[in-house]
Write a protein that binds this DNA or RNA. Sequence first.
DNA 1: AGCATTAAGGACTGATTGGTCCAGAATTCA
DNA 2: TGAATTCTGGACCAATCAGTCCTTAATGCT
Lengths: 193, 193
Amino acid sequence: MARPRSFEPEAAVEKAMQVFWTHGYEGASLPDLLDGMGLTRGSLYKAFTDKKTLFLRVLNFYEDRAVQAGVALLTDPAIPDGADRIRMLFTNAYRAVAQGDQRGCLLCSAAAGPSMYDDDIAAAVAHGLTAMRDAISVALIASPKHAQMPDEARLDLADMLIAQYVGLRTMARARMPAEILRNAVRSVSAILD
Amino acid sequence: MARPRSFEPEAAVEKAMQVFWTHGYEGASLPDLLDGMGLTRGSLYKAFTDKKTLFLRVLNFYEDRAVQAGVALLTDPAIPDGADRIRMLFTNAYRAVAQGDQRGCLLCSAAAGPSMYDDDIAAAVAHGLTAMRDAISVALIASPKHAQMPDEARLDLADMLIAQYVGLRTMARARMPAEILRNAVRSVSAILD
DNA sequence: AGCATTAAGGACTGATTGGTCCAGAATTCA
DNA sequence: TGAATTCTGGACCAATCAGTCCTTAATGCT
C-alpha cells in the first residue's frame, strides 16, 4: 500500500542504545543520535515520536538485552551453586572494565541522571533494577549456604547485592582504578562463602 | 582601591552546590545557577571563570563538607567500635532518603554523568570517593572483629563498602523503594557482625 | 500504468545554551 | 573631591538544542 521502512526499528533502537550508553540521556544530542542510528530527523520522529520516547524504548531494549543476560546467568541451572552465579555476574562486570569498557551500566547512569525528574524514566530504571534483584534472590535460593538463611535475611542480602552492583558499575564509569573494583568483587565473593 | 565584591564566594559556591546537586552538571543551566546563587552573569564569570570551573569548585566544596562529615564520623574515636561507625554512615544515608532527600550523593551523580568525558571532573570524583574509602578502612581497623583480618581482605572489604555506598546513594536518586535501601543497609550491618 | 499512501531527506524554527562585552555604579586612596 | 579601579547588571552573541513541516522518493494495489 505504501513505501516501506528502509530500516529495522529494532536495529535502530540498538544503535541508539550505544549512543545513549556512552553519552547519557542529556549528553546525547539529536545529531549524535541521527548519526549513530544512520537515519534522518524525519524518519526518527516518525518512528519514535521524540527523544524521550526513544530513550524509553532504549531502556526497554537494554532491559530485554543486558538485564536479561544477567538474569539468565543468575538463574542458569547449569551452574548448580547460585552463589557461583552471583560471583560470575560480578566478575563479568569487573572484566568488562578491565577490558576498557568504562560505560558502566545504562540503567545505573540513567538512575543518576534524568530519573530524578522524569517519572517514566525512573519507573523504567526501577523496573530493570528490580528484575535483577529478583534474579539475585533466585540465585541465593539455589545456594546451599544461603537457602537455609531466614527468608528476611536472604532478601536483605539480595537488596545489598543489587546496590553493590549499581555501585560497582557507577564507579567504573567514574574511572576509578580497576583494582578497586577487583578488590570489591573479591570481597563480595568472600562474603558469599 | 576599588569596588568590593557584594557577595561571599564561599556562600555562592554553596548555593551553586545545591543547584548542581539536584539538577546534575548538564541539567543545571546558567539561568538556574544565577537564580540559585543570586548573582548575575557578569559577576559569576568574573569570579568563577566558567561553568565547569564553578563545578570543580563545587566538587571541592562538597568534598570539604559532605565527604569530610562522613570521614569525621568514620574516624570518630568517641564511637569505639569502627563497625558501628560504618553502620551509622549507612544508616544516615538511608535516613536521608526516608526523610525525602532523593538527591543522592553529588559525587556519585557526577560519577555517572560528565566524569565519563572530563578528566578533571573524573579526578575530583575519584579523589572524594577514595577519601571516603580510606576512612572506611580506618574504621575497619578500629573494629575488633576486622582488625584481625588479613590486611588484604580488610582492604578488599573497604573497597566493597565504598561501592556499596555509591550504589545505595545512586539507587536513592533513582527513587527505588526506600525499603530496598533499608534492607540493604540491614544486610550490610549483618555482614559487619 | 497510475493512483494512493507512506517514508526519507533536510531546510527551517523558536527557544535555550554557555559565554562575551560594555556602560554605569560603587568603592578606595590620594 | 576626583582619579583610579573593580564590580554589577544585562544586552547581546553565535552555536546548538529538540522538534516541525514540506517536498520528493519509493512502494503496493488496482
